[in-house]
């Protein structure tokens, strides 16, 4: 990356990471250590300047933006720290969107079931701004698991929540993950949360160290 002064800035260096199917991996690290950047690269949201990323058996470097998008469709789920729900859409519409994009037949029914599963059956017609932070993140979880993705990327999913609500969301995320046998890549700086994963990596100044 080009720094404002013109010099080159290395965000990630010598990262070699293998995540097996069904595995839950935690990426720990301080702010600015490159966690989110690594997550973006793994999910194909960004391109590395050098090196290669293989997602679900597909070499991402060989794919253009649209091909990467197609790869994500229905197979990759996301949960973000700031929820990233579409503000103009109701809870149901937000969950329904990826199902609709994947062309699933009874998408609306499935979306409603998922919301029921995360305990928001009564709130399906609410807009994001009418929901609390915890509720919004539960909608985001329902959306992330819509269509049974093979892999879920979660970026500080509890970062915007109080500990109690955060705990509830994490419990929910792991129970959904167990039910769907989804591979999980979790970015966090919460050591306790990381411990629930099969494998923990620590990022320090752009370098990846194995912690467990």
């Amino acid at each position: 990356m080009q720094a404002p002064g013109g010099s080159l800035l290395s965000i990630l260096t010598g990262v070699d990471l293998n995540v097996n199917a069904g595995e839950a991996v935690a990426l720990l690290g301080a702010s600015g250590s490159g966690k989110s950047t690594l997550l973006g690269l793994l999910a194909g949201l960004d391109e590395p300047t050098s090196g290669e990323v293989v997602l679900l058996g597909q070499q991402l470097n060989a794919l253009d933006e649209d091909a990467r998008t197609r790869l994500r469709l229905g197979k990759v789920g996301f949960v973000f720290q700031s929820f990233q729900l579409l503000p103009g859409m109701t809870a149901l519409e937000n969950v329904d969107l990826p199902l609709k994009l994947s062309g699933i037949a009874n998408h609306q029914q499935q979306a409603a079931t998922l919301l029921e599963e995360v305990g928001l059956a009564e709130r399906i017609d609410h807009l994001p701004r009418q929901l609390s932070g915890g509720e919004q993140q539960r909608v985001a979880l329902a959306r992330a698991f819509a269509g049974d993705p093979q892999i879920l990327f979660a970026d500080e999913p509890t970062g915007n929540l109080d500990p109690e609500t955060g705990q509830q969301v994490i419990d929910l995320m792991f129970s959904l993950r167990d039910r769907c046998s989804t591979t999980l890549v979790l970015v966090t700086h919460d050591g306790k949360l990381a411990e629930r994963c099969d494998c923990i990596y620590r990022l320090e100044q752009g370098r990846l160290m194995s912690a467990s």
């Binding site: 999910a43 998008t69 994500r72 990233q84 503000p87």
Partner: peptide
């Protein structure tokens, strides 16, 4: 609003 929306749509797998 549109920029954010497009980014989310793209993340969820909506193609160009």
């Amino acid at each position: 609003e549109r920029a954010a929306e497009i980014a989310i749509l793209r993340t969820l797998g909506a193609n160009r």
